[in-house]
Write a protein that binds this DNA or RNA. Structure first.
Lengths: 205, 205
DNA sequence: CTGTCTGTACCAACTAGTCGGTACATAACT
DNA sequence: AGTTATGTACCGACTAGTTGGTACAGACAG
């Protein structure tokens, strides 16, 4: 074995990696345990050593997806306080658009997909997913509120409401892009979302 | 024969009715044939007399869903030419919101759900779903273009692009409402969508 | 009798999950 | 030292139940 195999439980990681990939592509129900096992090269007994059920694997995979989304997409845009708050939001739009372009309109939004598949069918997943969207929206709300405090957003705007709408707009755009396989729709929607910000914009735009 | 409906093949209708209900709630893959059979009280042999596969049932169910959506939601708003075009659009928003309220945030958008579940996994369904969204958007585009011709929408607005965005906004709003089970989010998003129209609105609003 | 329907029995493939058993490293006891 | 025990990591056959789909015999009309 190579010296680099210091990894504490590489097997668990293998499983999670394969599961995330498959489930974000095919969904939770349509990804069988055997699919995951085949893709990760792990035996069944070994799987049940690390996870007590498929459900628990699902939860772990969800945590992994969230982490990836937060680290790769959300934080890079919102962590830099020197950037103007509305520009942080715009940066985020562009990043989501770019991600969609890179994936060739395949896969859609992992969180949106799971939300659509499981919200009405599995309360545990629903709650976790709702929490994710809330956290996501909170990041946007904060930036919008900051913009409002700086008077680059009008006082008639409710940052929380606007944040909901922006999340919804992005999710819907991703879905439409996924089903039509046409990235231009994503571009159009991001353009409209940016224009929507102008609706409340005061001062230099 | 009764004057109203002769019930040409009631069994087929029973199956379709049960299938639509179950599949819009639980999704295509998670609805088994036995589920449909149990719910409709139809035997298996009988089922395969009317449908040659589950896939074909899915297509038929999709057609049924579309028809219902068009007849119950789309047409009532857009068929009346005497209503101002932008009011037709607003009426449509309200109708979608109302539908969501009546269903207690359960189920989401049948077409959106199927799009999310099947777009990357079943090309046949993807194409049909893409076509639906296109037709839906076309209805909006026409109304918006008419508004533009009447100069109640500014010339800088691209009706096709705006229509995409409105569909995306609605789909995203329904998804967010489904996962959070909070109708207020739907209301907020519809409010923002209406506000978005104002962005391009000229003349008396 | 003939063609349209319908129910029952059945199939192979697949599902999540369980089982007994193995390999191996570290520790504990003598 | 030697050997006995313990915990971790792993395997693949197996179970019970479900999946979509088929075969076929009977019913019921014209």
């Amino acid at each position: 074995m190579t010296s680099a195999t210091k990894t504490p439980n590489a097997t668990r990681e293998h499983i999670l990696h394969a599961a995330s990939r498959l489930m974000t592509l095919k969904g939770y129900h349509s990804t069988s345990l055997d699919d995951v096992l085949r893709a990760s090269g792990v035996g069944k007994g070994n799987f049940y050593y690390y996870f007590k059920s498929k459900e628990e694997l699902g939860y772990a995979m969800l945590d992994r997806i969230i982490l990836g989304f937060v680290e790769r997409t959300l934080e890079p845009c919102f962590s830099d306080g020197t950037v103007a708050p509305l520009d942080r939001v715009r940066c985020f739009f562009d990043r989501v658009l770019e991600a969609q372009r890179q994936r060739n309109c395949v896969g859609g939004c992992p969180m949106g997909n799971l939300a659509s598949e499981l919200s009405d069918v599995h309360e545990g997943f629903r709650q976790r997913l709702a929490e994710i969207f809330t956290r996501w929206r909170a990041r946007l709300t904060d930036a919008l509120a900051e913009a409002q405090a700086q008077e680059s957003l009008g006082p008639e705007c409710d940052p929380a409401v606007l944040a909901y709408f922006l999340v919804a707009g992005l999710e819907g755009a991703i879905l439409l892009t996924k089903v039509t396989k046409d990235i231009q729709i994503m571009e159009a929607c991001v353009g409209e979302l940016k224009a929507h910000l102008l609706l409340y914009t005061r001062g230099p735009r």
